[in-house]
């Protein structure tokens, strides 16, 4: 009996004083599906890095056959209309997806985080009114119309799509962070900081934003997936990537080929995308569960 009490006391000692991050890591380790998803994402990341370093995917634009060819040992997914290897193109598409995902997720999360924190900290005052009005306006414009307008306005700017996504995606992060900051700013340690005359900038950037990092992390994973999916749709509509190849472009090619009974582009691009999006979503859910303080167990 004593031994049991002793054990349970030890356990409690172990959890007391544990930081949010170590607790999250512990919880994440227990989530087998989340870990598997994480490794799948890592494999994709490895592919993207490999393409960047020129280990593979660099011959996506070479003509290896004379037009279409079926699946074979040399060309796993066959070749396309121009005789280019579909597998190589799908690998290159991974790099494109990560490039867009990372840029959009990082910039949009950063922007949303900062603006959300400012709006939340000054809730009810002019900065808050301006920021909430601004994201209200952005949210009221249908996303694809907004992107199309930007694509035309930015003519042949290679980053038109990135700019369009960032301009719209930051709003969800901003809204969530604003709510969180309104909650945090009434906590005692913030009121104490204000009472002793710590500057607003220091309070926001040193004491508030670090306490919303777990939300920003989850938000960025969600935005990453959203950006990849949006790129595919935009490229399909010819509003997407300007250079290189992407899964969206491959699917746009497939739209012409599928009615003629040629499914290789479709299988490769949608397969690559499906696995990555599924894995990233699963990982994102696992991360959210692990970082959610309400779910402490």
């Amino acid at each position: 009996m004593n031994e049991v009490i002793q054990n349970s006391t030890n356990k409690q000692t172990h959890t007391y004083g544990e930081s949010l991050w170590s607790k999250a890591l512990r919880k994440l380790r227990k989530d087998t599906i989340g870990i598997v998803a994480f490794f799948v994402v890592l494999i994709y990341l490895g592919i993207a890095v490999g393409v960047c370093l020129g280990f593979f995917g660099s011959s996506w634009d070479r003509f290896v056959t004379d037009g279409y060819s079926g699946m074979s040992r040399q060309h796993i997914f066959g070749t396309n209309l121009n005789g280019q290897d579909i597998f190589e193109r799908a690998l290159y598409g991974t790099k494109t997806a990560f490039q867009i995902g990372f840029i959009v997720a990082i910039v949009a999360t950063f922007l949303g985080g900062i603006l959300g924190a400012v709006a939340g900290f000054f809730s009810g005052k002019i900065p808050d009114v301006l920021i909430t009005w601004f994201y209200g306006v952005i949210d009221s414009i249908p996303f694809y119309l907004f992107v199309a307008a930007l694509a035309v306005a930015l003519a042949d700017n290679p980053y038109a799509m990135h700019i369009a996504m960032i301009s719209t995606f930051w709003t969800s992060t901003c809204r969530i962070i604003r709510g969180e900051v309104i909650k945090i700013k009434h906590l005692e340690y913030i009121e104490a900081a204000r009472a002793i005359g710590v500057s607003y900038t220091k309070i926001i950037f040193k004491h508030i934003i670090p306490n919303t990092i777990h939300i920003l992390l989850v938000q960025s994973t969600i935005l990453f997936v959203t950006a990849i999916k949006s790129e595919v749709i935009l490229s399909f509509l010819n509003l997407g990537v300007k250079e290189g190849v992407s899964w969206g472009l491959m699917l746009a090619e497939a739209a012409q080929e599928v009615p003629a009974g040629n499914f290789n582009n479709f299988i490769a691009a949608s397969g690559f995308m499906l696995i990555l999006v599924l894995a990233f979503n699963t990982f994102s859910d696992a991360l959210q569960d692990a970082l959610d303080p309400k779910k402490v167990s």
Binding site: D61, F63, L81, N82, Q84, N238, L239, L249, A252, E253, A255, Q256
Partner: peptide
């Protein structure tokens, strides 16, 4: 900006 034109460009 059109997929067929893009294929021509690729070629």
């Amino acid at each position: 900006s059109d997929i067929r034109q893009n294929q021509m460009y690729d070629q």
